[in-house]
Design a protein around this nucleic acid. Structure first.
Ligand SMILES: [Zn+2]
Ligand SMILES: [Zn+2]
Ligand SMILES: [Zn+2]
Ligand SMILES: [Zn+2]
Lengths: 135, 135
DNA sequence: TACATAGTGTTATATTATAACAACTAAAAA
DNA sequence: TTTTTAGTTGTTATAATATAACACTATGTA
């Protein structure tokens, strides 16, 4: 069976956990994931964290650092595991992955004072989502 | 006594903890701070976290989200508490606050697909610092 | 003074994450 | 096929990070 670019054969635990995150409309926290997959035989935190680590590594999910939560990648899984940007609503906690060619390009090419370029970044914007702005 | 713009009279605990962070060459973690200020009478995690929360709020320090660690602000304390950018070395863990007018401007004006602007952001770049690049 | 606001000290507890080790599985090398 | 290897699993225990709740104290302001 020939693997396509970026295709990863998830293991059982990885698949269970990815499916849960992927179906969720908001980021999920590790222990909430644990609670939700216990009926499927995943009993310990470490089983969850191991799957999360792997899924992050291969770019199927991203960690929202300011929230200690995990969201499925929606940028075609994900050319940019190393270059992530999110908007986070400070009221309802809705999180959206930003996919902007302009932004990616700007940040990928950003050099600091010393002329140093970076291999990876994570950007989190905070504000109010549309819904919460109208309230 | 008239307060100047951005001047904050730190309380005893806030001052102890700010001084420690300010003197440190790298970001400090909450429990390492606790350990280091116990001789000064700060005995419990909550005393540390309360001071940290306040110092973050007024922009004297920033939290490095991906590291759960705290660093003193070096952008004149800090016009940009709500707009932070750091570079993080993935080998030696050195963290530097980036102060780039171009970057600030770009991000402050960034609008997503829906034309939404954000009131706040945090950006963390990862790579190798100069020293570690040469090794 | 009286009141409000913020900070303190304390104990207990919640939440997030990793260490250590034995066992299993799949794939690839011999 | 057997052997080896790398990766994953299941498990118990524990480390690291962060907050709840409550009584009390300081400080500024009306
Ligand atoms: Zn993505
Ligand atoms: Zn919202
Ligand atoms: Zn700053
Ligand atoms: Zn370095």
């Amino acid at each position: 069976m020939n693997k396509m670019h970026k295709e990863h054969n998830l293991t059982k635990n990885q698949k269970i956990i990815f499916d849960l995150i992927d179906k969720s409309s908001q980021p999920l926290k590790a222990y909430s994931i644990l609670y939700n997959v216990q009926k499927k035989g995943i009993k310990a935190p470490l089983q969850v964290y191991r799957a999360l680590d792997k899924l992050v590594e291969i770019g199927k999910i991203h960690k929202i650092e300011s929230r200690n939560a995990f969201i499925a990648c929606h940028n075609s899984s994900c050319q940019v595991a190393k270059a992530t940007a999110f908007s986070i609503c400070e009221i309802c906690e809705k999180v959206t992955e930003i996919s902007s060619a302009g932004l990616s390009k700007y940040l990928a090419n950003f050099k600091d004072k010393d002329g140093m370029k970076y291999s990876k970044y994570n950007l989190e914007f905070f504000g109010l989502c549309k819904k919460c702005t109208l309230k």
